[in-house]
């Protein structure tokens, strides 16, 4: 019996190690940045908006998260799905999730079930249901319609407000 247990533990360990290696040597390099919009006025009085890294943020400020996925292998990646939880203390901004060539869905249960906004329903304590609000969203998912070719970069972006 003990020998069996050891074998099982060993197998699990191997499995975990394999996964770790897969992450380290994955074929898609995933990067995320958190930025805020900064409005600057030039000498001629014209305003321009720039994205700058978050340095000073207070409740009510909006953060723009940009995720980039680069295929660093020499074969196309299929069924590419990018997942990003709405960070704790942040509220998703309605209609802000975009990604060229992707279909965007959301979850309100921590990432178990994804759906379009109109399909998401929240159960109230009294048993009734209401349409989920952007504040209910816990996760965002971008599903790429086409394979990501070697060297190509896919972008996913969303905005969230600090509670």
């Amino acid at each position: 019996m003990k020998a069996k247990m050891d074998w099982l533990a060993g197998a699990l360990l191997t499995l975990c190690a394999t996964q770790a290696i897969a992450q380290d040597k994955g074929c898609i390099l995933l990067k995320t940045v958190a930025e805020i919009e900064q409005i600057t006025t030039d000498a001629r009085g014209e305003q321009s908006t720039q994205l700058v890294p978050v340095e000073k943020i207070v409740p009510g400020n909006e953060v723009i998260y940009t995720v980039s996925a680069t295929n660093i292998c020499d074969q196309a990646a299929e069924h590419v799905v990018i997942d990003n939880p709405v960070p704790e203390h942040m509220i998703y901004v309605a209609n802000s999730a975009i990604g060229p060539g992707t279909e965007v869905t959301f979850a309100i249960d921590g990432g178990f079930n994804f759906g379009k906004p109109e399909a998401l329903k929240v159960a109230s304590p009294d048993g009734s249901e209401r349409k989920a609000e952007p504040a209910d969203y816990t996760n965002i998912r971008w599903v790429m319609r086409n394979p990501l070719k070697p060297g190509d970069v896919a972008f996913a972006r969303f905005r969230a407000v600090l509670e």
Binding site: G26, C27, L30, T32, Q75, L148
Partner: peptide, 23 residues
């Protein structure tokens, strides 16, 4: 406030996944 994204994909029939840096 931290954020980390993840990606899953299939390459040559083999599923893979990776995680991003954490902001």
């Amino acid at each position: 406030v931290a954020n980390q994204a993840q990606v899953s994909y299939v390459l040559a029939g083999v599923p893979g996944n990776s995680t991003s840096n954490t902001t």
